[in-house]
Amino acid sequence: MIADLKTFIERERPVWQELERELGRVREGLASLSDLKYSRHLLALYQRASADLARIQGYSAEPELKAYLENLVGTGYAEIHSATRNSRHFKPWQWLTRTFPETFRRQLWGFNVAVMLTLVGAMLGGILVLHGNEGREAIFPSQFGHLVEQTPSQRVAREERPTEFDRMAGHKAKFSAELMQNNITVSLRALAFGITFGILTVVLLFYNGVILGAVAVDYVMDGQIVFLFGWLLPHGSIEIPAILVAGQGGLVLGRALIGWGTPHSLRKRLRLITPDLATLAGGAAVMLVWAGIVEAFFSQYHAPVLPYWVKITFGTLELIGLIAFLFLCGRRASSKPAA
């Protein structure tokens, strides 16, 4: 028990008030902990308040004083012990060209699994379409009604029919924005579904593969391979990997929840992957913004307006560029081995 509480409070109050004031300045950005002299002074104030809290903690009395000091020490703890966390400001270009590809490569296993699931789904979708057209309504979602109502050849004939006016004129930007909105929402949900131990992410990736496989086999069987590549490659070369990246994030989350191959606790596992999840989500969103622009402004034009070789070349270059970006960007020069 503190024999003279009145004196204790009167003596320590200026320290507490100064700490409170300085923490407020740090929070408001008016003072910086990068100043060594200042941070040492703040640390001394914080340590003294911590000692005062420890001094009164042995007793059940003085609840108001205890609550005040706990609040003060808690605030000080958050500011001082987090100082190294936020010392670097967010740099968008560095994040995009270094952090994102590094994260992608660090969690490459998740991307590989996402690709495998999509391929297995694509095989099933292809097999279902090969076995007859009756199941097409069940495979294709309602927004792909044109894939059910007409054969690929009919659609190609309609798309390639010469018209006097640009049918996309006047609503390309709107269409592009709607594509971005829809694709980003769906992809981020695939990531968020990782919280179901990855089960719903697996289902989404598999179903996405089923649709892709069904569409591809449908067009191939109808002899429209060139149209298929010309239609899908320009935006699909970015859009499909973006969905796989989001799925990668969902699988990373699912694995962290299950805890395979790691001795860490659940909280530690989740803490370790949180920055990666945010980065993968952001990366997928950026990719889908690009895909949305290409799909609305480029993919919807077909021969004779836009020759297929141009579209296929553009899409192939995009894919090569994306692979190079994801696998090569942000690689640091390997350190020289010790002599």
């Binding site: 808690g74 703890y77 967010f90 949180t274 920055p275 945010a278 952001g282």
Partner: peptide
């Protein structure tokens, strides 16, 4: 008890819809 990291804000809001 530490300050929030931006990635934590992103992830907790991404999972809001679940």
């Amino acid at each position: 008890g530490l300050k929030l990291r931006p990635s934590q804000v992103v992830v907790r809001n991404l999972l809001r819809f679940v």
